[in-house]
Design a protein around this nucleic acid. Structure first.
Length: 622
DNA sequence: ATAGGGTTAG
């Protein structure tokens, strides 16, 4: 009786991500295959070759394969295993040494290998073997053309997404244009390529023109909207997808959850969670991670942690989401604790994880702990600090008022400081009203990036907070002269599952009349409490919103007024803003929470503010 | 007897 492993060639195939079979097992397997004469069967040989190729047993595969009559089946199995393995670049070596002419299967595997390498390179991950992803992509495409398989639909769709993974929309377009009669898969690949390149409108046009859309096509389009931050459109498309009766699967829900996270659509996010449970969907790592992210970005950090704890399998993304969620919600100590748990669990943190922990420490004023984390990066975890991490450290010292430490840290940096480092110093100067240091940081910042909008706005706010109105108008003049563009700010609020978006000074909401009346009422009641706008027409929103005269209002005030009208008493008001909240709006919201006796949860670009009884969870430290 | 497009953290 052979071991169960040998009954079917398929069972010998390595599953993705599985550890490499132990050499002893491979030798035993080899012996069995030889003795039972199964190695003469091409399918068994193919399965065995794939098993050998699954990791570091490539040499063994090279030893076994040439001793048998060459079959493309076995060699394709090798290519397939290599393309899906940890070092896809090895497919190219195997391809070059093929003893037979490759077929359309071989080319499909080669293209997939190139696409995987391209994706790694685009993500900034080191490519094993130090290969040039673009060179390999072009050579894979070229091989397909030379071998006469460039017209195979499987190869074509792969080539389109391969160029998309490289970030080369023009080449993806060119490859797509060559397809005489693109099928639904090829068109979907192109929709994804256009969306990844940022041109979602072109993607949408292509999508709308599709004679037939399957669920993957819908997913590609929804993900495209999410990718460029047009989450409301993503959610609208998801509604249409359901009405169209397309199959809703994991990939769809992950994109929908990402959209909910972006705009703080907690009710919709909860609905997805409910939907998963009602359909008995498995909580995969990806789906669970998306849920943790959604709940924490919607301010429901307790639920986020419940989901996190309930997950059977967690990877570095899951842990990082949770660490980042705690940081964002101002729970610096808990964030640090979870990070330590991650270390004990043997999950290797990466650069993104460290950005999250350092930000958590920074927001909670945990200077020594943050310093210890930073010091452990390289030695203990083998993670080389990025410029972002240096920026986090300057932020950590600077926020805590240790401006000298921040400056010394910058002077001791082994690399040239980038705009983020100077930006952090500039922000620290603002918090601690150090105009001189702020000017210095700004000079450095503008020398690197003269069009930096946030820098100008920050300097203006430093002047404003120290009542230097001349300085403020000078900065504004400079901005106008240079044509520095400001990102428009928005605030979103969800009411009955519908997300309402407000822009600065906006009047386009259907209930704008009521909002105006509510704003007047809010102002009247605040004045009774002694509130006076601490800055008249001069204070910018911390980043880019501009206040133009007394009638213009920051978007969060509009959203807040609408929340007071549309949400019943006792229900907390949740607002999500794309920029940082300014001091005036922060003071205003604190008082509103007291005067109207409402809990207000506001997420800005960096963190959450939980307002209650006239105080904020950030302790005015942001 | 092997194959293509869509999904997670800053």
């Amino acid at each position: 009786m052979p071991p169960p492993l040998l009954r079917d060639p398929a069972t010998v195939l390595p599953s993705l991500g599985a550890p490499a079979p132990h050499p002893h097992l491979l030798r035993a397997l080899h012996a069995h295959l030889l003795v039972s004469a199964r190695l003469a069967s091409p399918s068994h040989l193919a399965a065995f070759a794939a098993s050998l190729a699954s990791a570091s047993h490539l040499a063994y595969a090279r030893l076994v394969l040439p001793r048998r009559p060459a079959t493309l089946l076995a060699h394709n199995a090798l290519l397939r295993a290599l393309a899906r393995g940890p070092r896809p670049g090895l497919s190219f070596a195997a391809f070059r040494h093929l003893p037979l002419p490759p077929d359309h299967y071989s080319l499909t595997f080669l293209v997939r290998a190139a696409a995987t390498l391209a994706a790694s390179a685009a993500a900034g991950r080191p490519v094993p073997g130090q290969v040039n992803a673009r060179l390999l992509a072009v050579s894979a495409h070229g091989a397909a053309v030379r071998r006469g398989h460039a017209a195979d639909p499987h190869v074509q769709s792969g080539v389109v997404s391969m160029y998309a993974a490289l970030g080369d929309v023009a080449d993806a377009r060119a490859a797509f244009a060559e397809i005489a009669c693109p099928d639904v898969v090829c068109v979907t690949a192109m929709v994804g390529a256009l969306a990844a390149g940022g041109d979602v409108d072109a993607a949408r046009e292509l999508f709308d023109g599709m004679p037939l859309r399957d669920h993957v096509a819908w997913n590609a389009m929804i993900a495209g909207y999410v990718h460029v931050g047009r989450s409301r459109e993503a959610l609208r498309l998801f509604d249409q997808m359901q009405r169209a009766g397309a199959a809703i699967g994991e990939a769809t829900l992950v994109s929908v959850l990402t959209a909910c996270a972006q705009i703080g659509a907690l009710d919709r996010g909860k609905w997805v969670h409910w939907y998963m449970r009602s359909r008995g969907m498995r909580m995969s790592v990806t789906l669970g991670t998306a849920l943790v992210d959604m709940y924490s970005k919607c301010g429901a950090v307790v639920t986020a942690m419940e989901v996190f704890e309930s997950m059977g399998e967690r990877n570095v993304y899951t842990w990082t989401s949770a660490v980042s969620g705690l940081a964002m919600n101002g729970m610096g100590l808990e964030c640090l604790e979870l990070f330590k748990r991650m270390e004990s669990a043997g999950i290797q943190p990466n650069g993104v994880t460290f950005v999250a922990v350092l930000r958590g420490c920074s927001m909670a004023g945990l200077v020594d702990e943050g310093q210890a984390c930073f010091d452990s990066m390289k030695g203990k975890h083998g993670v080389d600090p990025w410029l972002e991490h240096y920026g986090c450290m300057v932020d950590l010292y600077g926020r805590a008022g240790r401006l000298d430490d921040a400056i010394n840290f910058i002077n001791d940096m082994p690399v040239e400081p980038h705009e983020g480092v100077w930006g952090a110093l500039l922000n620290a100067s603002r918090i601690h009203n150090n105009v001189e240091l702020g000017k210095h940081a700004l000079d450095k910042l503008l020398a690197i990036e003269s069009q930096n909008d946030a820098a100008h706005v920050l300097l203006s706010n430093i002047y404003a907070e120290s009542q230097n109105w001349k300085g403020v108008s000078r900065v504004r003049g400079v901005m106008k002269a240079k044509g520095v563009k400001k990102v428009p700010g928005w605030s979103a609020i969800e009411v009955d599952g519908k997300v309402h978006e407000f822009f600065v000074g906006g009047r386009s909401h259907p209930r704008h009349k009521e909002i105006e009346m509510m704003l007047a009422e809010m102002g009247r009641r605040l004045r009774l409490q002694g509130y006076a706008a601490n800055t008249k027409e001069v204070l910018f929103d911390i980043e880019e919103e501009e206040k133009e005269g007394a009638i213009s209002l920051h978007s969060e005030k509009l959203a807040l007024a609408f929340g007071l009208i549309a949400l019943p008493e006792g229900v907390e008001i949740r607002i999500v803003k794309n920029l940082r909240v300014c001091k005036d709006c922060h003071d205003y919201t604190k008082l509103i929470s007291k005067v109207f006796n409402r809990e207000i949860i506001m997420r800005d670009r960096n963190r959450f503010h939980h307002f209650k009884d006239g105080t904020c969870s950030c302790k005015d430290y942001w």
